[in-house]
Amino acid sequence: MTYNLTVSPDFAPDHISGWYFFNTWLQRQLDTGIHLELYDGFDEQRDDIQNNKFDLIYANPYDASMLVRELGFQAIARPADKSDETVIAVNAESSINTVEDLVPGSRISTTDDPDVHTMGMIMLESADLDKTNTQIKEHPSYVVVAKNLLNGDSDAGFFLKDAYDELSDLIRSKMRVLVSSQISVVHHSFLVGPDMVEHVPALQDALFTMHENDKGRGVLESMGISSWEPMDSEQTEFMIDLIDTLID
C-alpha cells in the first residue's frame, strides 16, 4: 500500500528538495511506499485534504484544527525550537518606523496563509487599522510580498518569520521589520491520519532519533529543521484553541 504525504505550502523554495529527501528517508524507515505531493497554494491543498487524499501532513497551525477535529488526524511531532511567528515589514527606505505610523488606506501585502494573515491584522490594531480601512492585496508567496514592498506597490507586508529570515540577504537588506509576534506556542505539526495510525510508534521512533545520525541530520538540515520533538494531545488542543480564538 502507498500512503500520501503533503506539506503546508509556506516553506521556503530552497527546502523543496529537502522534503523529497525526507520522503525517501521516511519510506526506508517504515519500509512502505509514500508519495509526496507539494502545492503552490493553500486552497487546492485544502480541497484535497478534505477529500481524504492524504495520510501524513506537515501542517500549519490553522489547518491543524481542521485535521484534528474534523478529519481525525493525530499530531505526533513538531520541529524543535521553531515556533510560527509573524512579522510586519516595510521597504527599508520607507518613512514608516512603527506600526502606529501606518494610516487608513495603507496598502498591505499578504498571502493566503491564514494564521500569518490573522496575526498580522491583529498587530495592525494598535494603529486602529483593520480590513475596512486598509487595502489588502493577497499574493501567492512571501517572495511576491517582498517584491511588492521593494517596488513600492505596498506600504507594509505580512511574513511568516521563518520565511522572512530565509529570503536572500539582498532582499532582506532592502526591507525593515516593524514588529514581530512573540506567541511561541503556535507552530507547524506533523500529523498522522486514521488510515496510518498503526505506523505511529514506528514514525515516532524514526522522527525522534532522526538527528542522531549523519544521514538523518543531513535530511533535517535540507528541510531547515534541527530535530523533532514529541507533541501530545494536550499541546495540540491548546494550540488549536488559541488559533480558533485569534481567528474568531
Rank of each mutant, 00 (worst) to 15 (best):
H187L: 09
E70K: 09
E229L: 12
L150I: 13
N97C: 00
T98V: 02
T24M: 00
R172N: 10
M121S: 00
Q182P: 01
V99A: 00
T111I: 07
M239S: 08
N151H: 12
F11N: 02
V116T: 02
Y58L: 10
D10R: 05
G224D: 02
G218A: 13
P9W: 04
L191H: 01
H187M: 13
F159R: 00
R107H: 07
T134W: 13
L191N: 07
I49A: 07
P194M: 14
L102M: 14
H187V: 12
R78F: 05
Q182G: 10
N23G: 11
T209F: 12
L149V: 12
A89Q: 07
A89I: 05
T111S: 05
D31V: 00
I49N: 04
Q29R: 12
F190W: 10
G224H: 08
G18D: 13
A75V: 05
E85T: 11
R217Q: 08
Q135K: 14
V219C: 07
F54A: 09
M175Q: 09
I225E: 06
D128P: 00
I108V: 11
S8Y: 13
S65W: 03
R176A: 06
V7P: 01
Y142K: 03
E212C: 02
N148M: 12
I136N: 10
I171H: 01
E234S: 15
R217V: 09
D241I: 06
S226G: 13
N97F: 08
Q135F: 06
D169Q: 04
E85M: 10
E229N: 11
T110D: 08
P13W: 11
F22T: 08
R28M: 03
H188I: 09
Y39I: 14
E44V: 15
E44T: 15
L220M: 14
V186S: 12
Q182S: 13
D130V: 01
T134E: 15
K215H: 10
N23D: 10
D48S: 09
A80W: 08
S181G: 07
M231E: 15
L246N: 04
F42T: 03
L102W: 07
I240F: 06
E234Q: 14
H139C: 04
S83F: 00
D244V: 11
L67R: 09
M123V: 01
E100K: 09
V143T: 04
D214H: 11
L67Q: 03
S173W: 01
K147C: 03
D14A: 13
F158N: 04
G120V: 03
K82Q: 06
V144C: 04
G41A: 12
P140L: 07
K137D: 08
Y58K: 02
G218M: 09
W25K: 06
L30S: 04
L124W: 02
H15D: 04
Y39R: 01
H117A: 06
N60G: 15
L170K: 00
A146T: 04
Q182Y: 01
I225W: 05
I247P: 00
P201M: 15
Y62P: 03
Y39E: 00
I122K: 00
D112R: 01
M210Q: 13
T32H: 09
